[in-house]
Computed example of a mutant assay.
Amino acid sequence: MKKVSVLILSIITVVILLTGCNLNDKDKSFDWNKSIEKSKKIEVMLPGDSRAAVTITDSKEIENFVESLNVNEWKLADKPSQTEEQAKYILYQADTAHLGESKKGNTELMEIAYIVTYKDIPYIDLRIKDVSLSFKVPDDVSSYLFNISK
């Protein structure tokens, strides 16, 4: 009887500990908005142009851009096979200061990601480093990105 009581008490303790550890998991999820908001510059490139059609450097405009992306509403999906690129949004961040380096003299911006939009369809490609993902985005996001690239 004593062994059964110890076993039951042990199981209850483990369940309580595991449940307590999972309560804050939703708070630890990765926040894409905060990550993208670290951008210092966004360039909008149109197909066939070597110069940026639009450059966004103002922090309020970048914040507005990120909020308008509505990243939490994106759905992972394959884009249709017949697509024509509309614009490419290149996101830049300040290079990371490494141990022993001064951050003051570090003004070089590094490309961290880019978003490719397509004509007449609400799909985008997001590329970060060597990872590329396709998403179906809400129509309002697609319209917003289309209006920026005009």
Rank of each mutant, 00 (worst) to 15 (best):
M1W: 11
K3I: 06
K3C: 03
V4N: 11
I8Q: 03
L9M: 09
L9G: 13
S10V: 03
I11R: 06
I11F: 10
I12M: 14
I12K: 00
T13D: 03
V14F: 13
V15E: 06
V15N: 07
I16L: 15
G20F: 11
G20S: 13
N24R: 13
N24K: 15
K28Q: 09
S29Q: 12
S29C: 07
N33E: 14
K34I: 05
K34F: 04
K34G: 06
I36W: 13
E37V: 08
K38H: 11
S39M: 00
S39R: 08
S39F: 05
K41P: 01
E43G: 02
E43C: 04
V44H: 04
L46Y: 01
G48F: 08
G48Y: 05
G48R: 02
A53N: 10
A53T: 07
T57M: 08
S59L: 08
E61T: 04
E61L: 12
I62T: 01
I62G: 05
E63Q: 15
E63T: 12
N64M: 10
F65N: 01
V66E: 01
V66T: 11
S68W: 03
L69H: 00
L69V: 09
L69R: 08
N70G: 15
V71W: 02
N72Y: 06
W74I: 05
W74Q: 00
K75L: 02
K75I: 00
L76S: 08
A77C: 02
A77L: 02
A77N: 09
K79H: 03
S81R: 11
S81G: 11
T83Q: 06
T83D: 05
E84T: 15
E85Q: 10
Q86V: 08
Q86S: 14
K88Y: 02
K88F: 00
Y89N: 03
I90T: 08
Y92T: 04
D95V: 15
H98Q: 15
H98K: 12
L99R: 14
L99Y: 14
L99C: 10
G100T: 08
K104F: 10
K104A: 14
G105T: 10
G105S: 09
N106E: 13
N106D: 13
E108H: 13
I112L: 05
A113C: 01
A113I: 03
I115V: 12
Y118V: 00
D120I: 07
I121P: 04
P122F: 03
Y123E: 00
D125P: 05
D125H: 05
I128L: 08
K129R: 11
V131A: 09
V131I: 13
V131P: 04
V131M: 09
V131G: 00
S132T: 15
S132R: 12
L133Y: 07
S134V: 00
D140S: 13
V141T: 11
S142P: 03
S143V: 12
S143E: 15
S143G: 11
Y144N: 03
Y144V: 02
Y144M: 02
L145P: 01
L145A: 07
L145S: 04
F146Y: 14
I148L: 14
S149H: 00
S149N: 06
K150Q: 15
K150V: 15
K150N: 14
